[in-house]
């Protein structure tokens, strides 16, 4: 029997790796993939609680998170394509139009 906090700790570690990726990487696509990693770790938490508490709501929520992640990926990658067409780069340090 695997205790529930092992699932929760795994998801915490994955969330932290994703957060570190968002904050330290400068490639827009890798930042995006780190966000997917964070969404997935939250999904794992929801499924773990759902299974251990015997409540289906968590798994329904995961379903909605996946729908949001799919639309987020579509819109985000379209933004990256539009940015690349305009500036010929995906380096987030060089995309500073809205900074300051």
């Amino acid at each position: 029997m695997i205790p529930m906090n092992h699932y929760l700790l795994l998801s915490a570690v994955m969330f932290i790796i994703g957060a570190a990726g968002v904050m330290t990487r400068r490639n827009a696509i890798i930042v995006f993939m780190s966000i997917e990693l964070m969404l997935n770790s939250v999904n794992l938490t929801l499924v773990a609680y759902s299974a251990f508490l015997g409540d289906v709501t968590g798994q329904v929520l995961v379903f909605f998170v996946m729908a949001v992640a799919a639309s987020e990926a579509a819109v985000g990658l379209a933004i990256i394509i539009a940015l690349f067409r305009r500036k010929q780069t995906v380096n987030l340090d060089e995309i500073n139009l809205l900074k300051w």
């Binding site: 695997i2 699932y7 795994l10 696509i29 995006f32 993939m33 997917e36 997935n40 999904n43 794992l44 499924v47 773990a48 759902s50 299974a51 798994q59 995961v62 379903f63 996946m66 992640a69 799919a70 990926a73 579509a74 990658l77 990256i80 394509i81």
Partner: peptide, 29 residues
């Protein structure tokens, strides 16, 4: 890991939607 939690539907959706659809979009871009 979802399968060890007996969440079969979520496990299949994970492969279909994430590994199948979203990552194809990423690799394509």
């Amino acid at each position: 890991i979802y399968l060890t939690l007996h969440a079969q539907f979520i496990a299949i959706i994970q492969i279909l939607v994430y590994a199948g659809a979203i990552m194809v979009l990423f690799v394509f871009v």
